[in-house]
Every structure is written in C-alpha cells, then in structure tokens.
Amino acid sequence: MDGAATLTTARDPVERAYRAQGERLWRALVLFSGDREIASDAVAEAFAQALRRGTEIRDVEAWVWRTGFAVARGELKRRGTLSPEIPDLPQDAQPDMIDLLRALGRLSPKQRGAAVLHHYAGYSNRETAQILGTTAAAVGVHLERARARLRELLEDHDDD
C-alpha cells in the first residue's frame, strides 16, 4: 500500500497543477507535436508520474512541463516523424491554426519547442531552456531562427 499512500499524499497538489496547467500544457504540446494523441499521452504521463513521485517533486508545474515535452519529443523521435508535414491535424483546428501547425512542422524540433514555449506559453528564454534541457543562449538562437522561418512560411501562405 506504499504506492497508494504516496498517491493519496500527492494527489491534491498534482490535481491543482493539472487544473491550472493541464489544458495549457496540452495545447502547447499539440503545437509542438502536431498530434493531439501525442499531446494527450504526454500530459497524462507527466501528471501520472508526478502523482507517483509525490513529495519528491518540489515544483510540480515546472516538472510536468519538462516531463511532458520530454515524453512528446521521445515519441516524435520514435515515430521518426520529423518530416515537414504535421501528421495529424486536430479536428477542431481553424484554418489559421492549421497554417501555423503546418509552418511549425517545417521547423526543427528545437526551433519548434522554443517557439511554442516562448510565443504560446509565454516562458522566458531561461525558463524555456530549463524545460527543453538546454541553455538560454541556445534557446535564443533557436528562437530567432524559428521566428524568421515562421514569418517566411506564414507570409508565403498569406500571399496565396
């Protein structure tokens, strides 16, 4: 019953974090992966592991963002879907959203992660670096390149 006891202890802060951050993290992961199922699995897995670890985690929110992105990144790598096209567009995505997802799909994973965490989630370069497991300087570089590429891709589309 040790596992169960850990779950009981950990439930409240993790559930609070899920209610506060779950949807936002899920949307960020949809942008990052282009696949709602990967996003759902990554969010569920991150929070489930947080539940199991209980009091080992001091900052639940930061932890689930880092873990969620790690899970999604691993799954994209496993699938080998680093192609320019996003494999599975959300069904309720609006045309603008689809354009953005397609454009994000043409970025490298690091550029995509930096762009999503900065422009959607509102994290600073330092926070983004902590989530992606890199340095703030590297995030700055990826972000600049992502912006340039996105503007190019989205302008191209707007001109169509």
Binding site: R27, L31, D92, A93, D96, M97, L100, V116, Y120
Partner: peptide, 10 residues
C-alpha cells in the same frame, strides 16, 4: 497566431 491555440478544446 499562437494564442489561437486557446481555441483548441482540451
């Protein structure tokens, strides 16, 4: 453009 992602139902 990124904020339009808030329209996705989680």
């Amino acid at each position: 453009r990124f904020r339009r992602a808030d329209g996705l139902s989680a």
